[in-house]
Amino acid sequence: MAICLKCKLQSKLVLSFLLMILMISGLTFFVTYHEVKNQIKDIIRSDLMNKANIIAMSINGDLHESLNPGDEGTEGYKQIQDILSNARERTDSITYIYTMRRTSTGVEFVVDADLGKGTPGEETYIGYNYDDTTPELLLGFEHPDADREFATDNWGTFLSGYAPIKNSKGENVGLVGIDMRSDDVIKKQNFIGYTMFFMVGIAILIACLIIWLFSATIKKDIKKLNQAAEKISTGDMDVTIDVKRSDEIGELAESFSRMAASLKIMMHIQKKKK
């Protein structure tokens, strides 16, 4: 505070405005960023749900129901696998795409888009049990849903969307699951964060520049008034104050001019009297 009191007027103005802008924009940034992050996650969830639902609707539920362990080489399996593979090719940022069904003990994989195409060890076969179920995955057997939070399993950390597969009777006989890596979700969230941060930074810079220019004109005019006052104090009444503004500083300059004129008049009268 003591340091600031010693500062020049221009520095004080710029500093105080800068502090004010930083506080307002900082608060706005953090509140908005948090909200935007959640909004982006919601948009991605909704997108995953919709995509899973579209894929699920194109899968023959009766065929899916009929697949048993060891049927990985059959035409029926390949038909569903092609649907999943084609869907993934058309979709950005989808890492895994698969179908599942309920069993008496839990949930098992049925068709994997990566079987025979992906990295060995990451593929799943018909009947491969899945133990890391989330509440949203289980709800996905009833209606389209997506994970509210990132879920971690043997394949990594993902945000997943699910949609039920129906047979010809309209019964839910399985689900389509699509996984998006958490890194991709975070990348999308961060992109918005960086963009906002950049824009706030630019806005602060522009505001600082405007304040700097504004305070520079005030400083310049106050300097002119100061120089005129110095001149008058030395007895030189022949001063002209070149300040053309319509604000309080302009009014001060006008008052100053009138004072100088009055002093000149009084000195002239006194001189004539002598």
Binding site: S255, S257, R258, M259, A260, A261, S262, L263, I265, M266, I269
Partner: peptide, 9 residues
Amino acid sequence: YLGPATKNF
């Protein structure tokens, strides 16, 4: 224009 010394002027 002339300030407080107008009357004197």
